[in-house]
Write a protein that binds this DNA or RNA. Structure first.
Lengths: 206, 206
DNA sequence: TAGATTGTTAATCGATTAACAATC
DNA sequence: TAGATTGTTAATCGATTAACAATC
C-alpha cells in the first residue's frame, strides 16, 4: 500500500536494518531471515517483517530476504538512491566532527557546504570544505541544491539559523542545538540532542 | 505511584521539560501551566500533566506549576540532584566536541575521564582532562566512581569498549558508534547515531 | 464567586506481537 | 515431501488525548 501513512517508528528502524544488511553484504552473506535480523538487532521478527511489508514483498517464503536486494530496496525507500546534498551551520567542534563523518555517509548523503557566522572560523578548511559566511547561505544552498540542513550552533543561535535554512528552501533539518526550533509545519525537523540523551539515561541509574 | 513502571517515552520528555523550565527560571517566570508548556514544546497539555503526575502532585489547581519547584522535582526524578561522573572513550573529533559540552552539562553531569587506545592521542589535553590509555579504564573508572560511559570510537571498536565499561562497573552507556552493542540486560544503553538520524530524515524528502 | 487549571479516569488511537495460511 | 519462513490478519498491549470533577 504505497499510500498508507508510515509511522515514524518504522522509518527510524529502516536505517538500522540498512546498516546491518550492509555488514552482512560485506561478509558475502546472501540471505537473511527476519529471525536472524531480530536476534542481531534486538527486535521482534514479526515487527521486521511488518515494517518491510509496508513497502512491498521483498522476501521469499521458506527462504528469507536476499541481502543485496533488500539493501537496494531500503535505499530506494529512504531515497538514498539519489545524491542528497547536505549543508551544516556551525563550524565548532561538533560541526567539525560531523563533517569528518562524511566518509561514513557513503550512502549518497554528503555535506557539501559549511557555514559559520564568526569571522574567526570563516575561511577555515574542514575536510576539503571552506567554511563560508552565513551571509552566503541562501545563494550557496540554492546553487548546490542542498536539501537537508544540519544545525550545530549554540542554542541561542539555532532558531535564527533554522529561519535561514527555511528561507533558502531546505526541506528538512537535523538540529543538534539543545533548543526546540519552530519551522513551517510542512518541514521536518529531527532533534539530536546530546544533553537530553544523557539526562534521560541518568533516570535509569539505581 | 512510585512503583509503577514509567515508559521510556515519558522519561525522554522529562529532560525537555527541564531545559525549558530552566529557561523560564532564568527569565524569572514564577509559574507555568501545562497549556503554556504544551504550546512551547509542541506537546499535548494533557500528556504533560500525566507525565508529571506519575511522579507526584507538583501543580496547583487553577494556578499551574511553580517553575523553580518543578525544576527541583524533575532534577530529583532524573537523579540530577547528585553529581554523576561520566567517562568518555574515543578522543576523536566527536569525543572532543562532547567534552567541550561539559559546560552545558551543568546539571551535575560531568565528564571526568577521557580514554583512547591510540598512542597518538594519549596524553593530549581536552578541556583540562588528560587523555588516558584504555588500559587504565578499569582502575580510573572505579577510582572516580564513574557511572555512565560514552562511546565515541569507530564502529569496529565499540563492542570492545562496551565490554570494558561493563567490566569496570559502569551502570549505563551512551553509544555514538553506528553499531548495536550487546551488554548484560540489566544495563541501559542509549544510541545516539548521527547517520541513522540523517538517513531517516531523508525518507521525508519529497 | 467566577475563571483557570490540575490530577485522573475513560475513550481513542496506534504500535507491537502472536498466530497461521500460503508457499518456497 | 518436510521444514522453513514469509506476508498478513487478529489479538494484545501501551501510549496519547479528551473530558471533567475537584479545587485553587
Amino acid at each position: 500500500m504505497k499510500t498508507m501513512k508510515i509511522s515514524e517508528a518504522v522509518v527510524r528502524r529502516l536505517p538500522v536494518y540498512l546498516r546491518f544488511l550492509n555488514e552482512l553484504s560485506k561478509k558475502n552473506v546472501q540471505t537473511v531471515s527476519s529471525q536472524d535480523l531480530g536476534q542481531k538487532l534486538d527486535l521482534n521478527p514479526a515487527q521486521i517483517r511488518k515494517d518491510l511489508a509496508y513497502f512491498g514483498e521483498f522476501g521469499k517464503k521458506g527462504i528469507g530476504y536476499d541481502v543485496d536486494y533488500l539493501i537496494e530496496k531500503i535505499r530506494q525507500i529512504l531515497k538514498l538512491d539519489k545524491i542528497i546534498p547536505v549543508a551544516l551551520v556551525g563550524a565548532g567542534n561538533l560541526g567539525r566532527a560531523l563533517c569528518n563523518y562524511n566518509a561514513y555517509l557513503k550512502d549518497n548523503m554528503k555535506i557539501v557546504a559549511v557555514f559559520d557566522s564568526h569571522e574567526s572560523k570563516i575561511g577555515d578548511t574542514i575536510n576539503n570544505l571552506k567554511v563560508k559566511s552565513t551571509n552566503e547561505m541562501k545563494a550557496t544552498i540554492q546553487e548546490l541544491k542542498v536539501r537537508i540542513g544540519i544545525i550545530t550552533v549554540p542554542a541561542a543561535e539555532a532558531q535564527q539559523v533554522a529561519n535561514q535554512f527555511v528561507e533558502a528552501g531546505v526541506e528538512a533539518i537535523l538540529n543538534f542545538a539543545p533548543m526546540i526550533i519552530k519551522v513551517p509545519s510542512e518541514m521536518r525537523v529531527h532533534h539530536a540532542d546530546f544533553t537530553t540523551e544523557l539526562q534521560s539515561l541518568a533516570y535509569y541509574l539505581d
